[in-house]
Structure formats: structure tokens, C-alpha cells
Design a protein around this nucleic acid. Structure first.
Lengths: 205, 205
DNA sequence: CGGTCTCTTGACGGAGTTCAAAGCTAGTGG
DNA sequence: CCACTAGCTTTGAACTCCGTCAAGAGACCG
């Protein structure tokens, strides 16, 4: 147990050390600021209507962030695997109700921090302020690309892009959630894959 | 001329002072870091394929940020009016080619800063590091809402949301650019507005 | 083994696109 | 100040992609 959590903290420290340099004292401060939180499959870090109290670093497992619209349709915003972040920045910072759900796709483990602890950590390690600015910028860039992809290409092009960028996604995530990520219904994805397969066999014959 | 530029700098200082407190020395440092750049209607701060060398604060006029896809269709990502920022964060920071165009909708004026000057300014005013982290977070939040709106509702709902959030947009921006922002073609927006108008007259009769 | 969740398949419908043409508006130059 | 042009908006008809509804087949879990 002790050694497991030690490995999780090492992942986080490694992550930060790729972006900045840390003293031993700073590493200790980071370790004592982030708490381990285990979340079982299908359970939530937080749900729509709640405040996102924790920002989490995925040390084991995987998550999806989604939004349920007024017609009860789910729309997947992100998948998060190991070494990625989960949370709702707006809700976390403004302490207002979130419009998103963060759900574990399998039994998973997060390193979480709440807002007071994060502010305290920023004060003691000012370099982290920049690290998180860069993380947020990266996040914004990814979302911008996603948005442009969504408005400028059809579902099949978006599917191909996803498979290329994340070839193992189909082994990790059920198909109806991939459909949701692509912005189409499960029926449409099923039909689309059939079409692609048909074209493939025609080519190779 | 002198008093015009003085007013522009005051807009920027006022903007920063809403987010943090500044000493007189810091205000002077800000003023000497940002340069005035005038851009005529239909001209560009930068275009697709170029590096975004400047981050700009709109002191007068308005801009649109758009992306041209492989079918030569334009997709408007943002409009920017006074007291908003323009630029491509990824291109600016990583000094890589941008996938976006920032074009003036009318004769306009920006306060611009390049990367070395911004880094120098951050060193002399560390509080700005946080200000820009918060700006980026806000930006991300806005884009997330936009994305969810785009995938979960139809063009008419998106149009109504835009008009409500920005009632004067139709006076400021040509209709085909509004269509592009909504993710539809000008023909579709024209038809949609006709439909809406027809329903309105039926109601009031 | 039964129930629930997931994936597939079919027929139909609708929102938005495509292509083409005509009317309108605003900026430009004589 | 008018005339001309280029760009913007409107309209129509056919089409496409994806959604909707419904039903059945397969997979997973207690």
C-alpha cells in the first residue's frame, strides 16, 4: 500500500520535473499537498450541479468528462488517461456549480488538491504558477483544434483523426462513448464503421 | 495623437487594475512594453502559416479570428471587440506556424507585445503571471461552453444565444461571418432568419 | 440463467449543404 | 454625383449526412 502510493506521487513529481526544476523541499511540499483518492468504475469525482472541489492528476486508470444536455443526451468532452488532469477549471476556481461530470471508466486513482491547498502551494512554489499557466494554454490549444475539427469536417474524418492520435482508444473505451466524443449517436458510428470496413475489403480484393 | 495613445494605454492599465494592483513603476513598465499597432480594415495581425509574433489588446475597433479549411471554407473562431485579446497562444508561445488568421473588421488599433518583452514583463511584475493564467482559464471556459453548445444544440439555438449574449453583433459584423461563427453557411442563416421572422408575425397576429 | 447494457440493422425524417441564379448594397473611380 | 463593379444576401430545388424510432442480437454480470 505504502509503496503503491509512493509510485503514484513519483508520477506526479516526474510530470512536474519535465516542466520545471524542483528542490527536495518543494517535492515534499507537493507530496503533502496532493491526497490520494480512489474512484471505482462508474463512480464520479463530481457531477453536474456540484462544485468541482478537487483538481486531479490521474495516477492510475482512466476517466471521461461529459455533459448531459436538456434532452438527456451525454456529450463526452474529454477522456483522461494516466498522467492527465481532470477537473472543471471554472467550477474549481470560481467555486460555482459545474456543468460537467467526471466519471471513472475503470477502478482508478487520482492525486487531488483543493483550492486552498493549491493556492498555498503556488505561494510556496511560485514556479508552479507558470507550470499551470502552460498546462492551461496547452489544454486550450487542444480544445481549439477539437472545435475546428468538429465544425470543419464530418464524423468519419473526426473518427480517423481520433484513431490516429489515440490508436488504443477502442480497446479502452466503449463504442457509444467514442460516438459521443465524436459528436454523433452510437447508431451512426456503428453504420460508419460498417461502411469503412466494406470499402476496405473492396480495396484489398 | 499623443493623447489618443495615452487613452489607449489607460484602457490596458484599467483592464489590468481590475485583476490586480499595480504600482506607478509597474504601470510605466507596462506602457513601455506594449507598442501601438494600427491595422486597417481587412488587414491582418497575422495569417495562417505565419508565426503569431504579437499578442494584442484591442484598444480600438474589432477583429475576427478564423481558420480556412482544406475546402477553402472559413470558420470564425472568435470575434474580438474593445478590451479583448487577440492572438494565437500556441503559435505565440511555441513560435510555430499558426493555423489561424486575425483580421481587422474595421480600421483598428492594438496594443501589442512580443514574446521576449512579455517574458521580461512577467519577470518584473510576477503578479501578471497569475493575471494571464486567469485570462487563459476564462478563455478556456468560454471555448468549452461554445463547444458544448455547438455539439448539443441546433443552429437556431446557437443564433439565439449569440444575439442574447451580444445584441449588437448584427450591426457590427456582416451576416456571412455570423453564419461562419455559428458553424453554418450564409444561405442557411438567411433561410433561418426568414423562418424566425415568419413565426414572429404569426404569433403577433 | 435472467436482466441489463451494448452493438447492429432497417426505414424514415429533418437540419443543413450544394449548386445555381438573381437581387441588393456599398465602395470606387471617372 | 452617378455608374460600375464586387461582394453580400436571398431564394429555389435536389441532395447528404446524420438523427430518430424501433426491434433484434450479442455480451457481460450477478
Amino acid at each position: 500500500m505504502k509503496s503503491d502510493s509512493e509510485a503514484s506521487y513519483l508520477k506526479l513529481i516526474d510530470y512536474f520535473e519535465k516542466k520545471t526544476t524542483l528542490t527536495e523541499g518543494e517535492k515534499t511540499a507537493i507530496k503533502s499537498s496532493y491526497k490520494i483518492k480512489k474512484i471505482k468504475k462508474k463512480e464520479y469525482l463530481f457531477q453536474q450541479g456540484e462544485i468541482c472541489k478537487y483538481e486531479g492528476f490521474v495516477s492510475q486508470g482512466s476517466f471521461r468528462t461529459y455533459y448531459t444536455d436538456d434532452k438527456d443526451l451525454e456529450h463526452v468532452l474529454y477522456f483522461a488517461f494516466e498522467n492527465w488532469w481532470v477537473g472543471d477549471i471554472a467550477s474549481f476556481n470560481e467555486e460555482e456549480a459545474s456543468g460537467q461530470n467526471v466519471q471513472a471508466l475503470q477502478d482508478s486513482e487520482l492525486l487531488v488538491i483543493d483550492k486552498p491547498a493549491k493556492e498555498k502551494l503556488f505561494k510556496s512554489i511560485p514556479a508552479l504558477e507558470k507550470v499551470f499557466r502552460v498546462i492551461t494554454q496547452k489544454h486550450l490549444t487542444v480544445l481549439q483544434k477539437r472545435f475546428l475539427m468538429t465544425v470543419s469536417s464530418n464524423a468519419e474524418a473526426r473518427f480517423n483523426e481520433l484513431i490516429q492520435r489515440c490508436p488504443t482508444i477502442e480497446q479502452m473505451v466503449p463504442q457509444h462513448q467514442i460516438a459521443s466524443y465524436l459528436g454523433i449517436l452510437p447508431e451512426s458510428l456503428s453504420r460508419m464503421k460498417k461502411q469503412i470496413a466494406k470499402r476496405e475489403t473492396h480495396k484489398s480484393n
